[in-house]
Amino acid sequence: MHHTPRPTSRRTACTRPAGCSPLQAVEESFLNLCAEPQPLTMPAHLVCEGPEQPTLPVDQVRTRLAHAATSPTLREQTWREVVRRAQQLGEPWDTVAVAMTVPVLRRMLARLACPSHLERAEVEQEALAAVATALPSVDANAADTGRELFAAADRAVHRLAYAARRRAERETGSQAARLGRLAHPAANPDGHEDAVPGAEGGEELDEYTVLAHAVRAHVVGISEAQLIARTRLEGEPMQRLAIERGVSVRQLYRHRAAAEQHLAGHLRYQQ
């Protein structure tokens, strides 16, 4: 198989610049490999039927790989060749293999329900690390080689999101329980409200405390406060709450937006 020899400087690993996301850093390294005058190429017949030229730069290969008109057979043989080169030749083909997954990873992460406190960069790094870890051991002769890499990333980011959500539940469980008790006055039979940390002495209030104050001030209802807490602070998907409450997802989004507008106006007035 033909590939254009690469200058030594192109084979060095790319360090992530400040402010550059992990996916973007991989993308920049990949596009570097496609730059003139010596773009890294692959045989065009792998991804094109009746190609007009013998080779294509790897960024054009990726574009055709993602195109709806490309047949599953061509996709499969292209992925097999990309993985084979990464396993047998190393750099820069392992960078190419990881970068080939970036368009799918972007779509995957856009759909992922993450806790609000989980940084996107951490999720991206976890996905890329999973692909890089799976790359040496995936079967380069299998029909679903590409899907194996996507599945490894999907499992990794869901584990990360689940662990972050569980950690948040442990850390904020008592605060969430306070919101739950507001919905059931019988839980406080003496009629006295719980002491609210941060309410005195000029301390900054956390998000749950702000919501609790807003409920007591009749700015939002308990149902609205729980909706904001569960989706914004705890990362629960809207679809789950919509099913639970028997309404459409669109209606629930409108409901939350209205409640957040009331809450924002109340907070501005308090300042």
Rank of each mutant, 00 (worst) to 15 (best):
P72E: 02
R166Y: 06
S71P: 00
V138S: 02
A195V: 14
P7Q: 04
S71A: 14
A212F: 05
A217K: 11
R178F: 07
P5Q: 11
V247D: 02
C14P: 03
E126T: 15
S21G: 07
P92I: 09
G19I: 09
Q77D: 04
R166F: 06
P189S: 02
A163K: 13
A176I: 05
G19Q: 02
L149E: 01
E124W: 12
G201D: 06
A164V: 07
L160G: 02
F30Q: 05
A187D: 05
G246Q: 10
A66T: 09
L205G: 04
D206G: 14
C20P: 00
Q226F: 05
G50F: 13
Q38W: 08
Q53K: 13
R178A: 15
A121P: 00
L179V: 12
R75K: 14
V157D: 02
V210A: 06
Y162T: 14
A35L: 07
E234Q: 15
D190K: 05
A152I: 11
P72M: 06
H192N: 08
N141G: 08
R230C: 10
E234F: 11
E169H: 11
M1R: 04
M42D: 02
L211E: 01
L65V: 03
L233C: 11
T133G: 08
L252G: 01
A99D: 02
E171A: 15
A161D: 01
A25S: 14
Q239D: 13
I222D: 01
A18Q: 06
T209R: 07
T101Q: 08
A259F: 02
R10E: 11
S248D: 12
A187F: 04
A153S: 12
A257S: 14
R120E: 09
R254C: 07
A242D: 06
A225M: 08
R165W: 06
P51E: 11
L149Q: 05
N32L: 15
Y253N: 01
R181D: 02
A68C: 02
D206E: 11
C34F: 04
R75I: 04
L118R: 02
M108N: 03
V157C: 07
R216V: 03
L74I: 04
R106L: 11
T101D: 02
E193D: 15
Q261V: 14
L182F: 04
A156D: 05
Q270H: 09
P57F: 07
A129S: 15
E76M: 14
Y208L: 09
E36Y: 08
S29M: 07
E171I: 05
V220K: 01
Q271T: 12
T55C: 07
E49S: 15
Q87V: 07
E171G: 10
R6D: 01
S248A: 13
T73K: 06
E224L: 11
M42F: 11
L179H: 06
E234G: 06
G180E: 13
A257Q: 13
A143S: 15
D206I: 12
H67S: 12
D206R: 01
V83P: 00
G198R: 05
V247R: 10
Q270D: 03
N32I: 04
A69M: 07
Q88A: 13
C48P: 00
E200N: 10
A161C: 15
A199L: 13
P22V: 06
P185A: 10
R85E: 07
L135C: 09
P237W: 04
V247H: 06
A152F: 01
E36V: 10
R232C: 15
V58P: 01
E236R: 15
T15G: 10
V102G: 00
